[in-house]
Amino acid sequence: MGSTLAQQIINVLQLGSIYALIALGYTMVYGIVRLINFAHGDFFMVGAYVAYAVFYAFNAYIGAGSPLAFLALAIAMIGGAAIAMLSNQLAYKPLRYKPKLSSLVTAIGVSMFLEYFFSAFPLIGPSQRGFPEILPKQMYTIFGAEISNYVILDLAVAATLMVGLTFLIQKTSLGRAMRAVSQDKDAAKLMGINVESIITATFLIGGAFAGAAGLLAGLTYPRIQPYMGILPGLKAFIAAVVGGIGNVPGAMLGAYILALADNINDTYISQFSNLLAFLILIAILLIRPTGILGEKTADKI
């Protein structure tokens, strides 16, 4: 049983890392523009397809292995960032000072567009594609649990990006501007901050994270299709809310809590899929209405 428990802990850590990468982008965008960006899961899907394309374009020249993996990571992040920025410019920015729920509808529209376009476009199509093994897989046995180098990679990338993001937000002037915009857009503008360019930067970073998550998910669960972003997008959204939406460490924490909930659910009540994840979500929000690490906001008249 010891090995089973160790194995399940590894399983949780791996799933949680994938959730965390998507949730980080979700929570960043929300923190700045207060928009539930339904299309975020689809940015993740775009990242996976971009990485897939990179593999087929460059595999012949480079050959599978670390250099190709880094190239794929870089281009997947650029792809995710580009699609996020484009969505922001075309569908969200014109509605910035309109009722915020109208941009929620365009977010659903962008999400539908990306899914159905990828599915209808002949070069991509709805078929399930096997994601190539860019890195050779190796297995290690630790405490009776089977760990592949992919698990370690997932954890390492998630941890690095989170540390990097925390540094960016806490220590750089861009991060300071982001925090200012997140607290009060108008005051930030009066302080000479170009609010729109900060928002664009946020979308770029959030999209890049989603792109990275797309590559990692493609490597870890080697099958991609145009609708692959829906469920992880939903889970990441929940993770972000559980942790306190807009809060970076919170999103990370929420992602691992959600992965744990999924794991327990699938181990003990697997016939009722996703049940525990939602029950935990509700329980946590009823106890802490703004998430575990979220700040309480006072009502103002």
């Binding site: 194995q7 799933l15 669960y221 469920l231 999924d262 794991n263 699938d266 181990t267």
Partner: peptide, 8 residues
């Protein structure tokens, strides 16, 4: 629609 079956 899930891709992670490791718990089961």
């Amino acid at each position: 629609g899930t891709t992670d079956f490791k718990a089961q």
